[in-house]
Nucleic acid binder design. Structure first.
Lengths: 206, 206, 206, 206
DNA sequence: AATGAATGAGAATTCATTCAT
DNA sequence: GATGAATGAATTCTCATTCAT
């Protein structure tokens, strides 16, 4: 009656496939990746793969789901932390715990942008793109709003519009580094300048 | 004896195909478009199409070539114009003659980003992406540099870095409106805020 | 020590599977039905199902076996009954105890015809089809023959040929109602006419 | 501008494929036949075949279309012929010009029945089955009706019901010979008996 | 040059069957 | 005996590209 292999085992297997799939997507990009690539990377048979995911899109959606979940979690986490400063909080959201911009970006950013842009006429994919956008928008808007309330930010600009700018700029950076080269785009330097901009526009009090 | 007429004819035919192809790429996106789509839109036979272009990539490269040419031309044009103000000059580059940002974007931006991002591992495509990037970089850097020299801009930031920011932000905007929706992205409002930013960071003198 | 109980259990399980399988075959037809369908309907695991039947054909053969058995039984039964009239006896065979044709047909007729016709090049299936045919042929021939001997039927036609006609017509009716629609085929009306025909051709004495 | 290969050539090719496909369907049956079989029999490449027919069902529908067309034509033909006798006319419809039943049946009858019965839950196929049924029904009903009017048939039975019987019986015969064997079913003898039946039930006047 | 029929490689998907636990 | 995860063969279908005319 009870299943031969534990449910955890299935979860594990699924997770393994996803891990392998991520690598493949990072290496080949979304469009170029085939189910065969994933099979080979994950060491699953054709049928095995299809047991877990019904097609390539399904695999990628699972990855996105995970990413969105992770980002939500991180957001929660950050929100709970009794950060003394919304400014630092914002920087942490953008550049990680050390608040130091570097030249690294999420390697899944490229295949994700590819997934979204090649599927921009497909409602299903569009929905994922929107979720991703609005998740970010909510996070940044909230932080800025809180900072305003606390008196840390003295800007007269709309919080939401600033939040949008953060996303647009970040996406642009991700896009450019994907299609050109990390080195060419000077992500780090641009980020530093962008931080300056944000500080100014938000009217961050020392 | 002379092939002049026939050559003109060929040019014409090629141009027609490209016009039709643009429409198709705008409608379906780069990946989804097939040679059949182009054939049908351009009213050419299969063989006819292959006489002018050896594959889909070739067609799109021709379109890019034209776009790059046009942008270079526009740059030249603008540079020659005895614009009294580098600031206005910059705005004209970004938002056209009336310097007013609106919600419209180049409809070819989406398929182009798609072309670049899906082909980011292909040196050939990457080269196009780089050319596009560096063309823009050169233009904006030059203008800012000139503005500095003339004393119109009083910034202490590196011209090139500001130029990069312009490109990244613009690309991000283009990307977001492609994958979400014009309305959702509030291009116009974001652009207005971005102009404010530029004005500040460049230290534009009235 | 004795496997009696477990054997009964197995029989029961097998019977359950067959019952469920019948429903599935009736709903989806033979070809469209997959082992998965049967598993789900019977609430058996994949391996469990294969313990009892080695493939879909095997399942259907078991159903046929049962049907043939039932029909033989019914025949026996009817034969034993001290029916005063072979004519009524014949009608009972065709239309059940009340001898009234109606629009209902055996719901397994359709999947069975499908099973036979799609497998008409397979000796194994053909054998089942023949058994079914000759079972019926034997039954009807016997009844007619008996009726002749008893003087109830006064026909000069060969009993076997009339029996064949009964089968062909019945099969035709089953086929047509399967591929068209019960309503469209007017089974009941056709059956009434067919009874008239039989009465005439058999020369049934009141 | 004008096509390289004449339209007739395409028609010819299509017809060739259909001829080959018929043979294959007759040999393997509808379900067992694959596109590969047809490709090989017709000596076309995969792509070539798909240029003419988009899938197996499409191929078979073309065959059916042709059959229905042919049967309609034959009907027209027969109707135009100033046949002196509706009875002979009817026999010609059923058994060809010589009005002699034989053991041969249309070899496409089996795959067609298979096509209809396996697709009985598919509205598209059902429509073909209905068309086929109602075409026949119309033909036979008309002939019988005419025969009644002319006084040649003196039956009091509904023409339509007799017509239905003709179809059901014919279909039953086709089915049985498909799943058993021509020899086993004694088509010729059954047909002779059926003619007797029809003569009686129609009240054919000498 | 132009045509469009023909080609075939490659990707996706399904499902019967096996087999380790 | 039972389970259900895993396998892989078989098939469908699409499209870029070639090529005879």
């Amino acid at each position: 009656m009870s299943p031969k292999v534990s449910k955890e085992h299935k979860e594990q297997r699924r997770a393994n496939i996803l891990e392998a799939a991520k690598d493949v997507f990072i290496e080949h990009g979304y469009e170029q990746t085939t189910m065969k690539h994933i099979m080979d990377a994950a060491n699953v048979s054709r049928g095995g793969l299809y047991q877990y995911f019904s097609n390539k899109e399904d695999v990628y959606e699972a990855i996105l789901e995970e990413m969105l979940g992770t980002s939500m979690d991180r957001t929660e986490e950050v929100l709970k932390s009794e950060d003394p400063s919304y400014w630092e909080y914002l920087l942490r959201c953008l550049y990680g715990p050390d608040m130091e911009p570097d030249n690294k970006m999420d390697p899944l950013a490229s295949p994700s942008l590819e997934f979204f842009i090649t599927g921009r006429n497909d409602p299903r994919r569009r929905k994922y793109a929107k979720t991703r956008y609005y998740n970010g928008l909510k996070l940044f808007t909230d932080v800025i709003e809180q900072g305003k309330i606390s008196g840390e930010f003295t800007t007269s600009f709309e919080s939401e519009m600033i939040a949008r700018t953060i996303i647009s700029f970040t996406d642009g950076l991700a896009l450019d580094q994907a299609i050109i080269t990390k080195e060419d785009v000077k992500i780090k330097e641009q980020s530093i300048l962008f931080i300056e901009y944000l500080r100014t526009i938000l009217g961050v009090k020392q």
